[in-house]
């Protein structure tokens, strides 16, 4: 059975890689199989990790009084009913009701996301930019150079992202330096990520050479 699994995996790997030549029936087969399996798997996971433990079980326990649940579990009916409004789109007459769960989801999502973004992406990074200057006496010349370069980079890059001012004169010059910093950063990230992708390719080739060919020889 294990050998059969290896052969299926190898066949599907070749089907997907055949896309490098052109679109073909083998690729289409693998693509549709992949999507179908992913959707089916997703539905099962959603039922077992979402619907049953988060909605069905607490509600059922609240109704029947099983386990440690109290009648407060009936409050779960509120989010369940809001979630059920998603199915309103199946009725042309009542499809407007879907706007309520959507509004709640986007509102709650934004409410959670925005403070986190402010905290992690703005304040923490500004703090990180300033931190080396609080211990400047203990830094080596190279570290001091790095700290100064960091501040220049942050200020120039930030200038590039000012939208309500015309980028002319000094602002244009500073923002061009900012773009240069961005591109250096992107170049570094590009190289780093390509290395990661090559590692994935090596993993796949290793599977074909050792696991798959290993079943033949």
């Amino acid at each position: 059975m294990e050998v059969f699994g290896i052969w299926v995996a190898a066949f599907l790997t070749f089907c997907i890689y055949s896309f490098l030549y052109r679109d073909n029936p083998f690729y289409r087969f693998a693509e549709h199989l992949f999507i179908g399996l992913a959707v089916g798997y997703g539905i099962v996971i959603t039922i077992h990790q979402g619907l049953i433990p988060l909605a069905w079980n607490p509600l059922w326990q609240a109704i029947t009084g099983e386990g440690e649940a109290s009648r407060w579990g009936l409050l779960n009916l509120i989010p369940i009913c809001i979630g059920l409004l998603f199915f309103a789109r199946l009725s042309r007459r009542h499809s407007w009701l879907i706007r309520y769960p959507l509004a709640i989801l986007i509102g709650v999502g934004s409410g959670i996301a925005i403070p986190n973004v402010l905290q992690a992406d703005i304040f923490a990074q500004t703090h990180g930019t300033l931190t080396p200057f609080s211990q400047i006496g203990r830094l080596s010349a190279f570290e001091i150079f790095g700290a100064i370069l960091m501040v220049i980079g942050v200020i120039c890059t930030l200038t590039y992202f000012f939208f309500s001012v015309e980028h002319q004169g000094a602002i244009a010059g500073i923002s061009k330096i900012g773009i240069a910093f961005l591109m250096i950063g992107f170049g570094s990230a590009f190289g780093n990520t390509v290395m990661g992708r090559v590692a994935l390719l090596i993993q796949r080739v290793d599977f074909l050479l050792n696991n798959w060919l290993g079943t033949l020889f």
Partner: peptide, 23 residues
């Protein structure tokens, strides 16, 4: 969008002022 630019200006000022004060 303009309000966000104000926010960036605040960060800009915080960095410049922060560096000077730390020194």
């Amino acid at each position: 969008l303009r309000g966000q630019d104000w926010g960036k200006l605040f960060i800009f000022a915080a960095i410049v002022l922060g560096v000077i004060l730390e020194l």
